[in-house]
Design a binder for these strands. Sequence first.
DNA 1: TCTGGGGTCCTCGGGCGG
DNA 2: TCTGCCGCCCGAGGACCC
Length: 447
Amino acid sequence: MGRADGNGRLVSSPGANDAGTGILHVDMDAFYAAVEVLDDPSLLDKALIIGAPDARSVVSSASYEARRFGVRAAMPVGQAMRLCPHAVVVPPRMARYLEVSAQVMRVFSEFTPLVEPLSIDEAFLDVRGARRLWGSPGTIAFLLKRRMLESTGLACSVGVASTKHVAKMASTISKPDGVLIVAGADTAAFLAPRSVRTMWGVGPKSAEALEGRGIHTIADVLETPVDVLNRALGGAMGERVWQLARGLDAREIVTTRIEKSIGHEETFLNDVSDVEFLRGELLRLADKVAKRLRDGGFEARTVAIKVRFADFTMVSRSQTLGEPSAVGQRIGQAARDLLGGLDLQQAVRLIGVRAENLIPAGTAALALWDPDEEWRKVEDALDGAAARFGGGAVTRAAFVGRRDRATGGRGEADAVRRDRERERDRGRDRGTDAGGAPDGPGPGGAA
DNA sequence: TCTGGGGTCCTCGGGCGG
DNA sequence: TCTGCCGCCCGAGGACCC
């Protein structure tokens, strides 16, 4: 596997046993901070905190020098400065990080086309098919590190394993600037002694729930019946932890990802009680969301708002639009309607707008397509003969289904139901404009 | 000391139609 | 005609990740 260096870091040497592996997890080291050093070498070896200087911002990233003083990501900048008063605070430059991220991803793709970006600075790579070109997975890990440094000037850490979950854990343990190879046969021994908190997907809440039952390590999980895990964590999660603890993780590398939502949110410097101001902010955020929808070629079927109050309690409300939209005014109006339904006794700390249930722009027009008419054409053309299509009988339902798949709707049944709900809402909301449903057929609604 | 912003995925209850 | 079951979607909320 590897040797420990005394700081909890565990690394492998070139030539370590990599039998049974094929998945790499590559994670850039202190990415934002490293990019800042790259662009300004005078910051080298300095304690560096990436975060906006305003009162309510948190640390986005910190150099390892700052981490030595206890500075961590997501910590309030003020607190970080108390821990490390000599640190240099640099506001984040997302555009620059995205630029470097593209270079990083290009290096990944030199080794395999099977790259699954996880975030701006990390990815899974499936190198099982790259052996003849580059060598074994362990060899590729070391080659990739060298190539990354030559090409971008940045260091990364690499986990090599038989599954995504173990590769991810391995890269974390090898940080910074390490490689950790966990051969297939070593997986159980690698996992057993580690804290449940090191499992990917087990956060503070789940860890607390497990530890409250005396389950501290992955070895403890192995001795726990799955129904106990299910009770502690909830059905699917318990099952997953049970499997991951056994090294079972069938997830493949997913190279394409479709965006599912686009949102913007903002924390105010001071809590806000002025409802008119909040309504204005919603419109501004909705415009930003709408622009991104249009840039990405999307329309949103659902608009959601999120409000965090001064006491940090959070509520969200969402509404399905009568027709999908990428228009700021329409999204903003829906967001304002949703805000109108909230009890705003308390001042608001954060407000956000999110577009959900995205569909490709233009497909909403298909909602106006009449499947009955299309079906009549088929009947005419075939003159009643039994038609076959894609291995199944052609039915009118197939046309309805095709339309609904294209528009993301779920058919006439839903459209009828939504119409009824809208009628009911109209009755309930008479005299106010909050929660008012827009006109027009629902997504997938009958023409 | 006082907790960002961008996301994803999951659960759960309710409603609905087949 | 009524009822139960099932699958699906919606909406709210929570946990998690970087």
